[in-house]
Design a protein around this nucleic acid. Structure first.
Length: 858
DNA sequence: GCAAGGTC
């Protein structure tokens, strides 16, 4: 190399051109002149690369150089058929600047963001420059942050030209392949053609034919379509449907409290809750009969709450929405203004990890004088406090920008709104939290045993000094020792109902979009705002979104309309990664696709038709399943076959006593155990057919589109499983006792009908007491002998005796409880909060408990 | 008046 060569440097934005020019020139003899665009100035300075004198010209673009637009004759909405848009540039000022400068340069160095769009813009710049100078040597810079470290160097090595800048920037040796650039260009073009044509088409078609209730004049209403806005709306609609279709399901739980001199502890039932009232009552009565609590476990543990990862755009938007209810669009507007004024770093970044070259201490040092968090910053920098911790990494790096952090100290500027102050404070506090040790808490967990049932309570202490947006709940609990016994202050059977998930909040929506790759960090808030602007969705004061009637209330109609022109596919719905699964059997409804085992979005298992959504046949499995896998074993009784058996593993704590956590089950209808668990535990899905098309419940919780309210026992319609007549008779038959020929009472198992065996109890409270039980360990049926002698029926804890549970529920909730002698200070109350009596909750008879009531099966 | 992606 000889003589001075001219290097044209082009950045994606003016701020980068200015920063890099300042760093490389050391701000010595740096000249600035205007380009043809008023925003994109040109910096000039002399530089030397390994002894090669260079004259550097540093200018910029502002994002894409080329604006994809239709020709004039296609721009007017009525000038052409929307279909014509499938068959049809630019920021001229910047383009002319580049052309003029490129003509007199030998090298072209591209300082564009290192993402797909940056790649695309790079090719736009290359095309413009090469068109006027075919001999340009072209290279692309890669850099992570523009922070001046006092020295900078541009290098070249051998024949491979590369550029290295020692200032927290790194420059690679080449730019990427053309395919990427072409792909981006193609995406833009498809987005424009489809978006514009479909928006015009449906707006002109529908706007004047319907009275559309919106906040704008119908004539100005735009029914837009775009791949990002439509997908974003899809999330809102999906959740809305989920909420609408939720059917509350009643459940029961047992709660226990204990009062001591040190305070009150609330113990939660470790089973969580049961959906079967009878089972809950029986277990509750067991506890009431022997209410003395024994402490079985006391565990003290140190708990750590780690600070958040460094802040990227999506987290900034989500946290501003959660903490301040600030819309993502407004957050980005305020953040942009703070960035433009130099107070925070570039706000559009995916990066949530700091480069090792970033001087984090220097950023903290700047904040030491702040009246609110300055003292915390000082403590951070004091090695004796041990408060400093290098920040964690969230695992994302866009190679273009650092995480969002403060770049200039401020106690609040004149002209800042409250939102500017709030957002700046969030950025600073978040940064300080990132470089802090985790919060430490001491947690104590106490487990107690009442009549074999386990309950637990926990308490916690902690501190979170600087990040005041988050708390770490926890309460104090009294001191306990293992083996200690006490009488509960209260032991209650409480009821509750399952609730639908909440509508999507803005933070939820951002998470959905992020997960599905909808939009970019710079545009996601725009898509959300567009839904509101176009009246597709509304946002309530709690930042939760609902679709309006404009948002495709009837998806089925749209599908039907499309089906006129297109053949239905068997592909899973977009973004449904849960669709893949193992084949269990042929779908007996559509008889075309397979029923496959899969997990739904909540992590619960189901067996559904692979032809979804055309075929909605589904079997909802118990929510207590931990693992499930299809085996190669085929059920010998279910037809049409083959029906492959599934190996289930249940969460022991969520299933009744006596059920095995490991179960090889069949979904073909022959599996009583599975059916019982569905009845007792409920299914993983809380969804109902309402609002989702004609899907209803049938055998084994199966939902199909051609059956209505089928009973799980008799498969008949017209009554629910809980009111099945077959179960009434079955209950009466199985639970009544008979006398054998020799006069001794004989008892049959309520589940399998086998004659029971007479045994003797060996528990602390019933030692020596006789009882009948089923010889099959799977049934768990038992009845006290004295109960039989008195003419009372038996019980089976995992019984699916729905009629009994219903009659019991209606007839006597709040009337159970007996044998208070164990705990004179204990208060027994019903689910309704009423004091309980010594009466059977089924018939009201004070002489016995409901579990041995002769009327249970009636 | 239309998309999505940059940016100011």
């Amino acid at each position: 190399m000889s003589g001075t060569i001219k290097v044209l440097n082009v950045a994606e934005k003016p701020s980068v051109a200015k920063s890099v020019s300042g760093i490389l020139s050391r701000n010595q003899a740096l000249r600035v002149r205007d380009g043809r665009s008023r925003y994109n100035r040109i910096f000039e300075f002399n530089y030397s690369i390994r002894g090669q004198p260079c004259h550097m010209l540093f200018t910029s673009v502002t994002g894409h150089l080329m604006e994809l637009e239709f020709e004039d004759r296609f721009r007017k909405w009525h000038s052409c058929d929307p279909l014509d848009l499938y068959h049809a540039p630019d920021k001229l000022d910047i383009k002319r600047t580049l052309e003029e400068e490129a003509r007199r340069c030998q090298w072209l160095v591209l300082w564009l963001d290192c993402d797909r769009e940056g790649e695309n813009i790079a090719f736009e710049v290359i095309n413009v420059c090469r068109a006027v100078n075919r001999h340009l040597t072209i290279r692309r810079a890669r850099f992570s942050a523009l922070i001046d470290r006092g020295s900078a160097e541009l290098c070249c090595s051998g024949t491979s030209f590369f550029l290295k800048v020692l200032c927290s920037t790194y420059v690679s040796d080449s730019y990427s392949d053309m395919c990427m650039g072409d792909m981006i260009l193609l995406t833009h073009e498809i987005d424009l053609r489809i978006g514009a044509s479909f928006t015009r088409f449906q707006t002109m078609l529908l706007r004047d034919k319907f009275v559309i209730d919106s906040a704008t004049d119908d004539r100005n209403l735009v029914l837009s379509y775009g791949p990002c806005q439509f997908a974003t709306l899809g999330f809102v609609v999906e959740r809305y449907w989920e909420v609408q279709s939720h059917e509350p399901e009643e459940f029961w739980t047992i709660n226990c409290s204990h009062r001591s001199d040190e305070g009150v502890a609330t113990f939660n039932w470790m089973r969580g809750h049961l959906f079967d009232y009878t089972c809950a009552v029986i277990v509750y009565e067991m506890c009431v009969q022997e209410p003395t609590a024994t402490v079985t476990k006391v565990q003290h543990k140190e708990k750590l709450k780690y600070p958040p990862y460094p802040l990227n755009t999506i987290e900034l938007e989500k946290r501003a929405s959660r903490y301040f209810r600030m819309s993502s669009e407004h957050t980005m507007k305020v953040a942009e203004e703070l960035y433009q004024a130099g107070f925070i770093s570039y706000p559009r970044t995916e990066t949530d990890c700091f480069s090792s070259r970033t001087d984090l201490h220097a950023i903290v040092q700047e904040q030491q004088g702040h009246p609110d968090w300055g003292s915390y910053a000082q403590r951070l920098l004091d090695p004796e406090t041990g408060l400093w911790r290098n920040p964690g990494s969230g695992g994302h790096d866009d190679k273009a920008h650092p995480p969002i952090h403060p770049t200039k100290f401020s106690t609040g500027e004149h002209g800042w709104s409250q939102d500017h102050r709030t957002l700046y404070e969030l950025v600073v506090r978040h940064f300080l939290a990132c470089v802090s040790q985790p919060a430490v808490g001491a947690e104590t967990t106490v487990e107690i045993d009442i009549a074999g049932e386990l309950f637990s309570a926990s308490g916690r202490r902690n501190y979170l000094d600087v990040y005041r947006y988050e708390s770490w709940g926890g309460s104090m609990i009294p001191t306990y020792t293992v083996g200690q016994q006490f009488a509960p202050a209260s032991l209650t059977l409480d009821t509750g109902v399952t609730r639908p998930p909440p509508l999507l909040s803005e933070a939820d929506l951002l998470s959905c979009m992020d997960k599905a790759g909808i939009g970019t960090d710079a545009t996601m808030h725009d898509h959300i705002k567009k839904l509101l602007d176009r009246f597709y969705a509304t946002k309530d004061s709690n930042t939760r979104f609902s679709p309006t009637n404009l948002a495709r209330l009837n998806k089925v109609k749209l599908l039907e309309a499309m089906a006129v022109f297109f053949e239905r596919s068997n592909r899973a719905v977009g973004g449904d990664n849960y669709a893949a699964g193992e084949v269990v059997r042929q779908c007996d409804l559509c008889q075309e696709s397979s029923m496959v085992l899969k997990k739904n979005r909540d992590g619960n298992f189901m067996v559904g038709c692979s032809g979804f959504p055309q075929c909605r046949n589904a079997i909802w499995l118990p929510g207590s399943i931990l693992e499930a896998a299809v085996t190669s074993n085929i059920c010998s009784s279910c037809n049409p076959g083959p029906v492959y058996l599934i190996q289930f593993k249940f969460r022991q704590i969520e299933i009744p006593p006596g059920f095995n956590a490991n179960h090889l089950g069949c979904i073909g209808g022959c599996d009583d155990t599975l059916r019982q668990l569905i009845e007792i535990c409920g299914t993983g899905s809380r969804m109902s057919a309402r609002g989702r098309g004609p899907t209803t419940t049938s055998s084994n919780g199966q939902r199909s589109s051609n059956r209505h309210n089928g009973c799980v026992h008799c498969q008949q319609t017209g009554h629910s499983s809980n009111d099945c007549p077959s179960q009434f008779s079955r209950s009466r038959n199985s639970q009544s006792h008979t006398h054998s020929e020799n006069g001794d009472p004989s008892v049959s198992c309520s589940t399998c009908g086998m004659p029971c065996v007479l045994r003797t109890a060996n528990t602390a409270n019933n030692r020596g007491r006789k009882f009948y039980s089923c010889p099959s360990q799977e049934c768990n049926f038992f009845i006290w002998e004295d109960g039989v002698s008195n003419g009372n029926g038996g019980r089976s804890i995992p019984s699916t005796n729905c009629s009994a549970s219903n009659s019991g529920r209606r007839g006597g909730r709040g009337q159970s409880g007996r044998n208070r002698s164990h705990a004179a200070d204990t208060t027994f109350v019903s689910a309704t909060g009423d004091p309980v009596s010594n009466r059977c909750y089924v018939c009201g008879d004070p002489s016995h408990f409901a579990n041995v009531c002769p009327n249970r099966g009636m």
